[in-house]
Nucleic acid binder design. Structure first.
Lengths: 245, 245
DNA sequence: GATCGGTGACGAACACCGTTCTACTCCGGA
DNA sequence: TCCGGAGTAGAACGGTGTTCGTCACCGATC
């Protein structure tokens, strides 16, 4: 059983897939035949170690000791690979049984898990922005969030749009954090390397920036985790007014 | 007076720039010498017409009737160009005089303006994710938002993190909208082209997606503007509890 | 006006990218 | 055993950002 990459992708979006062929073809000369799972696992390893930018078809193929064109027997294209990665990653998020008493904490928990997955693979969240809304793996996550929100008494329309907002924010936050962490690798001294340096530059701002100068401390304090927790809480707090429990 | 691109970039981040050289060099054979403003204006035109992905150094150079290497006399690299574009774009946002009575509407207004700028140049917001936090043009925007939040009685620490959240959300939202709008240009039928198609697929989901199936209508309704307004309001509502007025 | 050195313009080339096309080998079914 | 389909792999296509070297032009200085 070996569906083509196009068929696999169609199945993920509940489209007709056509007949599935039996495996045939060379792999005898290879110690390990290339499979889509092997490609995905290898891709994750590269991203985890070197960031999403390091993930190229050539890099992937080299790591697998083959040529880049061999990958196209298993994935439609790079974008398809992105979708596989994001889907796999979303599948790792454990969805709690919705509880009306703790729905807010449950929301925070799911978002935090997703954040952790994205940060484990630096930069990968940029692939999530292009994801189509009908992939079964990512829909599972949305389904879980929807269940939690409904259990909390949030009206369906509000819940639907809140999912959109939360997921987008997690994407954006993790992308920014990943890009900022990548920055110190550059030897260019233009960029910021420390909070002290930012404070120095804020202090040197002209008088047209009075608030920034006065509150430089607050503007520069807080870890990425602090900011993430703040924002998710902010959104959840904003939902409380519309919840009926 | 002609600072090098490296010097211009340093100035934007309040770093030492060194001596500025007098303009010298050929332009006699060209009807119009290349300047950084010309590069930026040309880049905006390309992005506005064809999206951010169409903006390559080669495309830009061809449009300017030169070779790509000529651009590097005026911009440090592509990333520098990104920064110039984002800075220019942020500079177009009109910042209101903070008003304690209408601070919430003012917040929504600034975010909406920024959204509009980003959507005018489809996909450009992805360049904003990599922006360093010390660019003077983008700091002006943060300064304006900070003024509004403080006028509304939001504590400085909350205000600082709220700016982070709002700006990130605007980036993410506009990027997603831009990518989704780009999708119909593809002739691949795997992707969604209409709400009806999404509804069809939601209806076809297995029983493990009960909430999604039941609330398919709410999940698929709402324009990008609706969703944007909802989320900004959600965050602003979340801030009300911490505001003292 | 002549000279000089710095700057801007530009082509060639580098090192990379995603993907397609073609040829070949291997596999499983008949 | 034969055949056709599937998988592997190299060559090549069309593209990317950037550097390097060369040349022409410009402005400051003498």
């Amino acid at each position: 059983m070996s569906p083509t990459p196009q068929q696999r992708r169609a199945a993920r979006h509940q489209l007709a897939t056509g007949p599935v062929a039996t495996r045939r073809g060379p792999a005898g000369a290879r110690k390990k035949p290339i499979t889509v799972d092997l490609i995905v696992d290898t891709a994750f390893a590269i991203v985890a170690a070197e960031g999403y930018d390091a993930l190229t078809m050539r890099r992937l193929a080299t790591t697998l000791e083959t040529g880049p064109s061999s990958l196209y027997a298993h994935v439609v294209n790079k974008e398809d690979l992105d979708e596989l990665l994001i889907g796999r990653l979303c599948a790792r998020v454990a969805l709690p049984e919705p509880d009306p008493a703790t729905w807010r904490d449950q929301l925070v928990d799911v978002c935090t898990q997703l954040r952790e997955q994205y940060l484990r693979y630096p930069g990968i969240s940029q692939a999530a922005f292009a994801a189509a809304p009908t992939n079964l793996d990512t829909l599972r996550l949305a389904e879980g969030l929807l269940g939690i929100l409904l259990a909390g008494g949030v009206p369906p329309q509000t819940a639907a749009w809140a999912i959109d907002a939360l997921v987008l924010y997690v994407n954006a936050h993790t992308l920014e954090v990943s890009l900022a962490r990548r920055r110190p690798a550059r030897d260019d001294d233009t960029w910021v390397v420390s909070r002290d340096e930012v404070l120095r530059r804020f202090a040197a701002l002209p008088e047209t920036y009075p608030h920034t100068k006065r509150h430089a401390d607050e503007l520069t304090t807080g870890t990425p985790e602090d900011r993430f927790a703040f924002t998710v809480r902010l959104m959840v707090d904003g939902l409380v007014g519309s919840a009926q429990g």
